[in-house]
Design a protein around this nucleic acid. Sequence first.
DNA 1: CAGCATCCGCTTTGATACTG
DNA 2: CAGTATCAAAGCGGATGCTG
Lengths: 138, 138
Amino acid sequence: MTDPLPAWNRAELAGILTNGLIENCPVRDVLNQVSGKWATLLLMALSEGPLRFAELKRFTPDISQRMLTKTLRDLHRDGYITRTVYPTKPPKVVYALTETGRSFLDPFQALVAWARNNHAQIRAARLSFDREEAETLA
Amino acid sequence: MTDPLPAWNRAELAGILTNGLIENCPVRDVLNQVSGKWATLLLMALSEGPLRFAELKRFTPDISQRMLTKTLRDLHRDGYITRTVYPTKPPKVVYALTETGRSFLDPFQALVAWARNNHAQIRAARLSFDREEAETLA
DNA sequence: CAGCATCCGCTTTGATACTG
DNA sequence: CAGTATCAAAGCGGATGCTG
């Protein structure tokens, strides 16, 4: 627990994460897309199997149609999901995880688990911080 | 690799991730804070040991002073880092990871590794997508 | 059903100038 | 040195109305 963290040395860290500036960072380039408000939610929704557009909409009731379309398009563009159109009438479009999308969920799920496990503690820290701040101001 | 994903069933997923609506989701509550543009960068910078304000600024040259202050404050508030003030003249403020901050980096680093490993493939998917799109339009 | 186009507000970020 | 305060810019996301 007090052991020194996994050794990224500073130079390597700077190289990997920013390539000098944050704009040219490959890690950012990837994570920026999935760090949106809805992307991970949709990927997790698809983790049990393919879903249609309207099914995804029902799954996340508070997403707007605009954002659902846009997020699915971005995920498709980056290769996280496939998009299959059945030109029936009315049309039917099915989304499904690719192998890339599937493999992403593995490390991401670890982060979700961490967040769930640490939520209470973080909320406590926030409360404590805000309380002390209020005291100082008084 | 084709094995069915770790089984979150749909109901549990909806409960954990959104509690009905995305606003009351504890996981989001946690991840929103660290999904900012600079938070993870600063946490990683601190992974090798405490740093002063100006040192962190030098570490990420393209961050503005405003964002550095704000991000550090948020990380402190949520208990990821400590902030120690030495009331010398001129003042000296040292930031360091807490145990929470340290433990966060573990799952997060796995995600960074995934991003690095899959960056090339994702860029390729993007190119392919954009090329096909251009064809369709033509 | 599964989108696209437009407009519009809010939040996030950045630039700049000033302070204990 | 380590901030705070103010203002302006940009981007994300939502609401609405319209199509094949």
